[in-house]
């Protein structure tokens, strides 16, 4: 036990302290205006507000299924990277969404994602979207994410 050693933070702790930044660097996430509300190791919660421009059915005002796809994809990816012991980007390999019931118009949607298994290269996730609780779920998602090896800054494109 050393008293002077600075405790090393795990990726999820750094992510948890920078929740606002997490969606800020993602233009599409900003445009969808969802936010992350809570983060633990391998577990993430978020809120997707209702917006007129996200409506998929103009007759009922229900939000489009594609909004849930982006929302659950993002939360699942965050759950995946927060479950790792080293900071890594992950990219979606595949995502399956099941629509259980339509979302109610003009209500925000709560999302929850968990990473339930990790291998050397892949993270497996489950996610849920609902208004009140998981007993009355709107959609569920099952995802697989590839863990990317760290890459040199020079390989990144300027924005």
């Amino acid at each position: 036990m050393t008293d002077d050693a600075t405790p090393t933070q795990e990726p999820w702790q750094i992510m948890g302290e920078n929740i606002e930044l997490m969606t800020g660097g993602i233009p599409w996430g900003r445009r969808m205006s969802f936010r992350v509300t809570k983060l633990e190791k391998g577990r993430v919660w978020g809120v997707q507000p209702w917006k007129e421009r996200l409506v998929g059915d103009p007759d009922t005002g229900v939000i489009h299924g594609g909004v849930l796809t982006a929302f659950l994809d993002n939360l699942s990816g965050m759950a995946a990277s927060s479950s790792l012991n080293e900071a890594r980007f992950v990219s979606t390999l595949d995502l399956r969404i099941d629509y259980m019931r339509p979302a109610e118009p003009k209500r925000e949607i709560i999302g929850e994602a968990e990473c339930y298994h990790i291998t050397r290269n892949v993270c497996f996730t489950h996610a849920w979207a609902y208004h009140e609780n998981r007993d009355k779920v709107i959609a569920t998602a099952a995802g697989a994410f590839a863990i990317n090896m760290p890459r040199a800054i020079s390989t990144m494109r300027p924005f």
């Binding site: 796809t69 982006a70 979606t92 995502l95």
Partner: peptide, 16 residues
Amino acid sequence: IGNIAIKALHGGAIGA
């Protein structure tokens, strides 16, 4: 855009 660093489209946008 979903990733500013590599200027890639967001998977959710393509999915939608």
